[in-house]
Amino acid sequence: MPEAPLPVAAAPPRTRRPGPPPLVVFGFCWLALMLAVALLADLISPYAYTALDLRNRLSPPIGFGGTWLHPLGTDELGRDVLARLIYSIRTSLLIAFGATIIGAVVGTTLGFLAAHFRGLVEQAVLALVDFSASLPFLILALSVLAFFGNSMVLLVCLLGLHAWERYARIARGLALSAGAQGYAAAVRQLGASPWRLYGRHVLPNIASTLIVSMTLAFPEIILLESGLSFLGLGVQPPETSLGSMVGYGREYLTRAPWILLAPAVTIVLTTLSVSLIGDWLRDRLDPTLR
């Protein structure tokens, strides 16, 4: 390549889009860190999350008179806040991932069923959508927990029902408009089964919109789970989650605020990161917004 100045026409303007803004990069980094912590919890945790250190109860974190023995301090029973934080991140992320996937699968399936069968099935799905819209999700979740008691599986399934109606609406709307387009009709004419039509042809075409909805639902589920656990009605001891740590730390708000602040900051940064990524993805991917 000669160093001589090139004519303008020879250097076509690069149409590459600019990279993600710094806040989104931060979001990806933080999320990667959280995933690493969740996956490697057993390796990196300094102590077991239930281990007691009765000689160092309520010891403050480093920078506030604490020692490297317990970098983020300890709680009333001398349990290491960092270790509990690590396991809480794992629990909260696991629940949020499971619930997000359940919601997306259930909602999308019902949306496709409505679009495929129309008629009575569609009316039933729409009535269910109305039903979920008529109850604030927290109230619904609390009632189900009251009726059935609490277990981890129930909690994940319950949170999975959050936002299913959004996926159902999107999947139904987009499947209906896809059905009116040439490709779906062509595949059907070629004799493809409904499974193949929706799974191999319609789904990939609407996947970006669904992924954006998942990114937007994920932080909401983290907030719901931490809210329920904060109230003492979500994740039950000895298991620990970010919300239940805050709920526990609340008792020591004046004497040991670090018990509460560490998980609170983690919740905020995690939901913030996923929200930023979700907004950015929506602007970039979602064809319905262009």
Partner: peptide, 22 residues
């Protein structure tokens, strides 16, 4: 607005308590 959405109400409430009450 984004911060208001991502800070859970119990965290905001407890922070307000920490600052204005404690």
């Amino acid at each position: 607005a984004v911060a208001g959405f991502t800070v859970p109400s119990f965290v905001l409430g407890l922070l307000l308590v920490l600052v204005f009450a404690v």
